[in-house]
Amino acid sequence: MDAILLQILNGLDKGGAYALIALGLTLVFGTLGVVNFAHGALFMLGAFCAVTFQKILTISVKVKDESVTFFDAYKEVPYLEIWWGDTGLAIIDWAVPLSIFMAIPVMLLIGLLMERGLIQYFYKRTHAEQILVTFGLAIVLQEIVKSFFGANPIPTPAPDIVAGSAAVGSWLGLSDNIVYPYWRLIYLAFSLLVIFAVFAFLQFTTFGMVVRAGMSDRETVGLLGINIERRFTIVFGIATVVAGLAGVMYTPILPPDYHIGMDFLVLSFVVVVVGGMGSLPGAVSAGFLLGILQSFASMNEVKSIFPGIDQIIIYLVAVVVLLVRPRGLMGRKGVMED
């Protein structure tokens, strides 16, 4: 029972990350009709917003280690600590959550530049061409990040107050052995909040109503005198911000490196396909579903019966779903069928 509950938590947490990335992917596909293989790179750029913000906060005075004479070995004392003591250290400790305030405008700007500078020229091209150009862009972005930050992962810890594990079992009146990291619970809550915010924005605002109308019938909305292109550009920016925020908040779980986006990209595409191309609720449901299935497939009891199942479960489910429901769980008729 304990193991099952822990794997459900793992699955929800993993699913939250899949759902956030898939949400942006499917949003861009549903509105602009673009298959964006650079979406994983946007997740990575978000993560590196947190790294950059942390580096800015920890700009330091270098105190030389005199015992080393052959090169410059030094201990770093951040200026914030020198100026503000414990308050400065507390600000550094909260670098990851605070970096959200930097990531939102930065990612929005990146999204707008990317859409205006490149993506818009590929609206009328084939999906194969879109995939090629966006995949190429992803590689370029990766290499740029690698040249600045190196290839190794960079530690970006959560604030001390949420660095440990929560006694989830005790909270629920179950075993004391059921503990779960605070930050992963925060990530799950954050994912649900962002997903809810995106849905609410599209469902309850005039802007969202126009976008949804444009997703259904672009030409008619255009004939009504609405500049749907501009709105779609903003949607691309929003998708970029969502991917970036997912990346920022994931950094304490997985120390980021230049390749972190690619690790998520393929899985997220499977999530989008299983959920149904262009379907927002489909992407979210499939994200959580596949996350939970993947976690259960990794249990020793399951692997002892089906060795290696944890490696293939997601793709196996994708095959079964596409055989039974070729448009995915919540896919619409006519999407990617021309």
Binding site: D2, A3, L6, L9, N10, S175, L254, S298, Q311
Partner: peptide, 16 residues
């Protein structure tokens, strides 16, 4: 698996 990234599903069984 090599390059698993998230090891949570392999670490949680250690707890019990």
């Amino acid at each position: 698996p090599l390059g698993a990234g998230d090891f949570s599903q392999y670490i949680t069984p250690v707890l019990n």
